[in-house]
Computed example of a mutant assay.
Amino acid sequence: MYQAATDRYQTMQYNRVGDSGLKLSAIGLGLWNNFGSVDPLANQKAIIHQAFDLGITYFDLANNYGPEPGSAETNFGQIMAHDMKPYRDEMVIASKAGYVMWPGPYGNWGSRKSIIASADQSLQRTGLDYFDIFYSHRPDPETPSEETALALDQLVRSGKALYIGLSNYSSVQVKKMAAIFKEMKTPFIIDQPRYNMFNRQIETDLLPELAAEHKGAVGFSSLCQGLLTNKYLNGVPENSRANKSTIPFLHPAQVEQTLATVRALNELAQTRSQSLAQMALAWNLRQPTMASVLIGASRPAQVVNNVQALDHLDFTDDELAKIETILAAQTPIDWQAK
C-alpha cells in the first residue's frame, strides 16, 4: 500500500492563483501523454507516486487524454481508488471539456449540453465527487460565450467543481468571459495557455490581461514537447517523438531548425549548474502570473529532474539578456507546418 513521503512539502514551492485563496504547486503533472490505455499502469502509478512524494499537488487531466480518449481519466481513477484516496484533500485535480470526445454533435466544443455531459462522464471515469478546477478546453466559435460560462457556473453550483478555468482562449476572449463570470460571481481563477521559450505570444497580451483581471496562469507545453530538453541536442533520434508525432512543430525538419538554439541554451544552462529542461522551467516561472508549469513524464526520474528546477529559479540580468539574444537568432517555428 502506497504511503506518501513525510517530507513531501519541505522543498516544493506553492504559488497563489491570482487573488484567489488557492495555491498550486509550482510544478504540476500533466497527464496528456503516457497515461493512456496503451501505457503500463504500473509505470503510471510510479510517476504519480514520485510526483506526490516531491510535493506536486496539481494533477492536470482532460476528457480526451489517452489514447484511447478517456483512458487517462480511467487510469487516474484506478490509481486514486487504490493508492491516493487518503490524500484526496491534499490534491488539486483538474479536467477539461471542449475537444472531440464522442461521436455526434454533442461530444465536442462548448455547448451547455456538451460541457455538463462531459464533466459528468469525467467524474464517473475518475471516481471523484468533484474536480478542484474544471476548464473549458477551447472557445467554441458557434456557441455564445454566455452559454459556455453558464454551463461552467452550473458545475460549481452543483458541487461538481470548486473553481473554473479557461484554456486556449485569447486575451480578448478571456476578458469577455471574465466579465460574464464576474457578474455571476463564478470562481473563475485561472487560464491555461501554451508557454515556453519557443512560444511566447502570450507575453504581449494574455499575461497582462490575466494580471489586470487578477487571475493566474498554468502553462502547458512547458518544454515544447521535448525540444527544450537534452533529447535533441545531437539531432533527431530514430525512436523520438519527432519521428512518430502528428504534432506539426515536432516534424523532424522543424526540430532541425531549433538545434543551434537548443545547444546554445544548453550551454547557458550548464553555467547555471542546471539541465536545459530545468532552466527552461525556471524561465517560465519567472512570470509573476504563472502559478504553475505543467510537466509530462514517461518515467519517475524525469519528475525528479524537473522538480530540481526549483533549486535555482533566480536569473541574473546578464543571463536573461543572453537568453533573449539566443532566442532572437532562432528561425520562427511554423506551428502549422506539415
Rank of each mutant, 00 (worst) to 15 (best):
L228H: 14
S170T: 12
T258W: 03
A178I: 06
F198T: 12
L223T: 15
A119H: 02
K113D: 09
N306Q: 07
N75M: 04
A291Q: 08
L259N: 10
T126C: 13
M91G: 07
Y195I: 11
D191V: 12
E68W: 10
L206P: 00
I247W: 02
F52Y: 14
L285W: 09
T126S: 03
I295R: 09
Y163R: 07
A321N: 12
K322C: 11
F198M: 15
K113I: 10
N43F: 15
F249E: 11
A217P: 04
P103F: 07
Y135P: 01
S114D: 07
S222A: 14
I247D: 08
E146F: 05
A81C: 02
T289G: 07
D140K: 01
L294Y: 11
T271Y: 12
T325S: 07
F188L: 15
L22Q: 10
L207A: 10
V174P: 02
P237W: 03
K338D: 05
L228R: 09
G226W: 05
V304E: 09
V156M: 05
K338M: 01
P252M: 11
G219T: 15
G104F: 08
L313T: 00
N64D: 13
G77Y: 04
R16K: 15
M197K: 07
S170N: 01
S167R: 06
V92C: 10
N196K: 12
L268Y: 09
D140M: 03
R286K: 14
G77I: 05
S167L: 07
V174I: 06
S275L: 04
